[in-house]
Amino acid sequence: MRHTIIATGLSIFAGAAFAQTPVLTVYTYDSFVSDWGPGPAIEEAFEAQCGCDLQFVGAGDGAALLARIRLEGAQTEADVVLGLDTNLTAAARETGLFRPHGIAAEGLTLPIAWDDADFLPFDWGYFAFVHRTDLTNAPTSLEALAASDVSIVIQDPRSSTPGLGLLMWVQAAYGDRAGEIWEGLSDNIVTVTPGWSEAYGLFLEGEADMVLSYTTSPAYHLIAEEDAGFASAAFSEGHYMQVEVAGILARTDVPDLARDFMEFMISPGFQDVIPTTNWMYPATAVTLPDGFEGLTMPERALLLSPEEAAAVRDEAVATWQRALAR
C-alpha cells in the first residue's frame, strides 16, 4: 500500500517535471483580456506555436498597469507588460525595470518613425471627437469647437488615458495657448468622467453632441452593429495619437520566450486580431476589415515624445484644472 502511494507520488512528480512547460506572464489592461478583447484569440494563437503557457493578468487600464509594476518592483512576476502608451513610457523607463527588446522594428506602419529600444508598439489610434451623423455643424478644429456651442463629454486626465491624450493634444497643437483653448472649451464640456466607458455611455444616452474617443470608434458601430450613423470630426490642427506599446521586464527568467512574444506581437497572428477586438489600427501592414476604409484619416499626426509628454504633464493638468474649475 505504502509503495503504491510512493510510486504514485513519484510518477506525479516525474509527470510534472516532464510536462513542465515554460510560463510567460503578461500583464495588460483589463479590457485587453476580457472575453470581447484581443486576449483570448491571441493566447490561443501564441500557445499554438510557442510550446508554452501564456498567462495574461489584467490590471485596470494603462496607468493602473504602470502603478502595479512600480508597486511590485523587482519582485514582479510579469515577464512582459503590454498596454502602456507613450504618455507613460518615460515614467516606465525611469523605473529601470525594463530591458531593451532587441527587435529590429521593421515593417511598422505607424504615421511616425519608431526607434525606442525598450518599448515596441502593437497598435495605435487617433483621438477624435465622435458624433452621430445627424450632427450637421460638426466643428473642424479644436478652436472652432471651443467657439461653437457643440456639447462634449471628456474624460479626466488624472484617471483616464484618453483624458490625458486630449490634454496632450491641446498641448501639442497650441503649446502656450493651451490655457486659452481650455477656457474656450469649458462651456462646451457637459461633464468630465473618470473613464472612457462612462463618457461613451453618456454620449450614447444623448447627454452630449460629441465624445472624446477614437477615429476608429465609428467602425465598431458599422461592423458590429451595422449602424452607419456615427462619424468622427476631422480637426485641422491634426489629431493626437495614442500608441500602445509593450516592453520586457529586466527580471524575466524567460527572456527568449518574452522576445518571441514581442516578435509574435508584430506578426499577422496578433495584428490581424487587433482591428475588430481592440478597435484600434494595427501597427503593421495587415489587411484592414471592411468598414475601416471610410474612417476619418487625419492629415497631420501629433505626438509628443515620451520625454516631452512627461515634462509637460503636471503643468498641463494644472492648466486644465484652472480653466475648468469654474
Partner: peptide, 28 residues
Amino acid sequence: FAVALILGGGPGATTVELAIYQAFRFDF
C-alpha cells in the same frame, strides 16, 4: 468618486477619493 465627478460636471468636483486615484495612479 465617479458619481461626484460625473454629476459635479468637472474637476471642481474633485473628491478625496479622486485625489487618491491621482496620487496613486497618476503620480505614483
